[in-house]
Amino acid sequence: MKNYLFPLLAAFALTAGIANAQTTPQQGGGRPSPEQMAARQSERMAKGLGLSADQTTKVQQIMTARDQEMQAMRGQMQAGTATREQMRDQMMAGRTKYDGQFKAVLTPDQYTKYAAMQAEHMQRGGRGMGPRSDSTDAKGKVKIKKNKMKMKAE
């Protein structure tokens, strides 16, 4: 009986995982939709900034619009209809526009915290992973390690 218990539990876990994956639709390539990303981001901001329900709703609307705009920009880049410089200019204009909208929704204290969160996010490279402990010095400057791998003569 015990010999069948582990495979049975493993099969159940696999089935539950597949069922969950089927109930959470995503776009091609495993990327979440702009609405899903906005919901996740606004939830994180609500916790981090102590947003009210009304503020959370407004922030989610702003983020949905921003994420949809970003998705359209990615499509332009992939289609080759926009250059890197055009994309950079569009992104900077979008950042200014959406920061202004956030500033209108958040209190001054919340906006200050939001700006600090954004600066920290940019410092980490925008990927959500903090810097490795050996990648910064005591002054917070990033140290660049050179690959010291020696080439072997064949």
Rank of each mutant, 00 (worst) to 15 (best):
Q101M: 12
Q123E: 13
M129T: 15
E120C: 02
I62F: 08
Q118G: 02
D67L: 06
R44E: 06
M122L: 11
A19D: 00
K97A: 02
E43F: 11
S133A: 11
V142K: 14
M129A: 13
V142R: 15
G30A: 05
A21P: 00
V142H: 11
Q86C: 12
F6V: 14
M129S: 13
K103G: 03
N20F: 08
M92N: 14
K152N: 14
G130D: 10
K139Q: 15
G28A: 13
Q110T: 05
A53G: 03
G94H: 12
E120N: 11
R95I: 02
A119F: 01
Q123H: 13
M92L: 14
A38E: 03
G130N: 11
Q27T: 03
K47M: 10
H121L: 10
E35C: 00
A19E: 01
G140L: 09
T96F: 00
E154C: 01
T23S: 15
M129P: 06
G50T: 01
N147M: 09
T15R: 03
Y111A: 05
Q26T: 01
Q61R: 04
T83I: 01
T56P: 03
P108E: 06
M1H: 04
L106W: 07
R124L: 02
R66C: 08
A11F: 11
A93G: 09
Q27I: 03
Q27A: 10
K145C: 02
A53V: 15
T81C: 04
G17A: 04
L106G: 06
A93D: 14
A104N: 07
M129G: 13
A10V: 14
G48A: 05
M87R: 14
K152V: 13
G140C: 12
A138H: 02
G50E: 01
Q118I: 07
D134G: 15
Q118S: 05
G48T: 01
L5I: 15
T57V: 01
Q110R: 04
F6L: 15
E69D: 12
A39E: 06
D89S: 10
A16N: 04
M37A: 13
R84W: 09
Q71H: 12
A93H: 13
G126F: 04
Q22T: 10
A10Y: 04
Q118L: 11
Q26A: 00
A53F: 12
L51F: 05
N3Y: 08
L106M: 11
T83V: 01
K58I: 03
T57P: 00
R31E: 06
P34F: 00
R66W: 11
R124H: 12
G125Y: 07
G100T: 06
G17Q: 06
G50K: 02
R31Y: 04
Q68A: 01
M1W: 06
R44V: 02
Q27C: 09
K103V: 02
K103S: 06
Q68S: 08
Q61S: 10
Y4M: 11
K113I: 01
P7E: 06
K148S: 01
Q36H: 10
Q61M: 07
G28Y: 06
Q78A: 11
G30T: 09
M63Q: 10
Y98C: 02
K47T: 10
R44K: 10
M151I: 15
K103N: 12
G75Y: 03
D109G: 08
A115I: 00
P25F: 12
K146A: 01
